[in-house]
């Protein structure tokens, strides 16, 4: 089985891209499954079901969604193996732009859209910087010039990535993405013992433990103060 992690800012078009790409792969006889990670709720599983793609969803609730992802990815992989998929896609929303759920030697795709602004690539951390493929969406609604500027900004943040333009509505580019996403010779039976491409931020303070009150006397643990001096 192939395992691929797809992530990107909310509403960048991850689900649309996966749906269009999976359709082209399924037409070639590739068995595709999806696991959708989200924070509070998602209805995207219904979209996958409607497209005939077996899907499971994981809602992190009160936990940090990226930590939840790492704690569950092995179980997810085992589900995929049991179901006999050729390709298992894990989809997760990047929430604070600091984390990335990518795993070493496991395909990593970041989806961002042209509308997010030209300074956005610089602001997104490891989720963009350590991706193998960067998919840029919503190119049909911005000018050629903006597309070129945006792609060059992405390239200067992550020159090693393959940058692709895919249209989540018409599916233009989805077939081509499919040829990169699924590689027959790759076999992943377990992710146990593998490592994240990037460590997650260290944060354990009183607010992690449920504190809601504001003020110095309530803050313990890993606390850092903003510098307002010039």
């Amino acid at each position: 089985m192939n395992l691929v992690t797809v992530s990107g800012p909310p509403s960048s078009g991850k689900t649309a891209i996966i749906l269009k790409t999976a359709a082209t792969l399924m037409q070639k006889g590739v068995k595709v499954g999806v696991v959708k990670f989200d924070c509070l709720s998602t209805d995207d599983d219904l979209l996958y079901e409607k497209a005939g793609i077996p899907v499971r969803k994981g809602i992190s609730g009160a936990l940090c969604p990226d930590h939840y992802f790492v704690s569950n990815i092995e179980e997810v992989a085992q589900w995929g193996v049991k179901e006999g998929f050729d390709l298992l896609i894990s989809e997760s929303a990047g929430l604070c732009n600091r984390c990335s759920p990518y795993i070493k030697e496991i395909g990593a795709i970041c989806v961002i859209d042209n509308l997010s602004g030209i300074n956005t690539p610089k602001k997104i951390g490891p989720m963009l910087k350590s991706a193998d493929i960067v998919v840029i969406t919503k190119g049909d609604i911005v000018s050629q010039a903006e597309r070129e500027v945006f792609a060059s900004r992405v390239n200067s943040v992550n020159p090693k990535a393959t940058i692709m333009h895919v249209n989540g509505l018409t599916g233009q580019g989805a077939y081509e993405l499919g040829t990169l996403m699924y590689q027959e010779e790759v076999q992943v039976d377990t992710v146990k013992g593998r490592e994240l491409r990037f460590p997650m931020p260290s944060a354990l303070c009183s607010y992690c433990l449920g504190e809601t009150r504001i003020g110095d006397e309530y803050q313990m643990g890993n606390v850092r103060k903003i510098n307002l001096e010039r």
């Binding site: 030209i118 049909d140 609604i141 911005v142 050629q144």
Partner: peptide, 9 residues
């Protein structure tokens, strides 16, 4: 260059 393109910046 298509019909529904806009400048967004």
């Amino acid at each position: 260059l298509s019909q529904n393109m806009n400048f967004v910046m």
